[in-house]
């Protein structure tokens, strides 16, 4: 998905993990997914670009759909759709 498409998405749960280092963003995502309704989109913001591949692999293991990522002003936003 393009950055514009990602930005236009309705986000069911926003996770601001900016300013935390590994494993902070992954742990924040794991904790927040329970609060994201099934089928809705979760956005994880991180200032560590290692989060992008981490979340891709996490989605694959947990069965969530990875939608894409975009760079913002000094941080990255990663989007996924909760499966179950």
């Amino acid at each position: 998905m393009t950055a514009e498409e990602l930005m236009a998405m309705e986000v069911g749960k926003l996770v601001d993990a900016r300013g935390t280092a590994c494993p902070g963003p992954l742990l924040d995502a794991k904790r927040a997914i329970a609060e994201c309704p099934v089928g809705e989109v979760m956005e994880v913001q991180s200032s560590d670009d290692g989060t992008i591949i981490d979340i891709q692999r996490w989605c694959k293991k947990m069965g969530h759909e990875y939608l894409g990522d975009r760079e913002d002003d000094g941080f990255w936003s990663v989007y996924l759709r909760r499966a179950k």
Binding site: C22, P23, L26, L27, K30, W58
Partner: peptide, 11 residues
């Protein structure tokens, strides 16, 4: 502990 937390996040 970082590896442990990562693994726990992966269930």
């Amino acid at each position: 502990f970082i590896i442990a937390i990562g693994a726990a996040a992966f269930d």
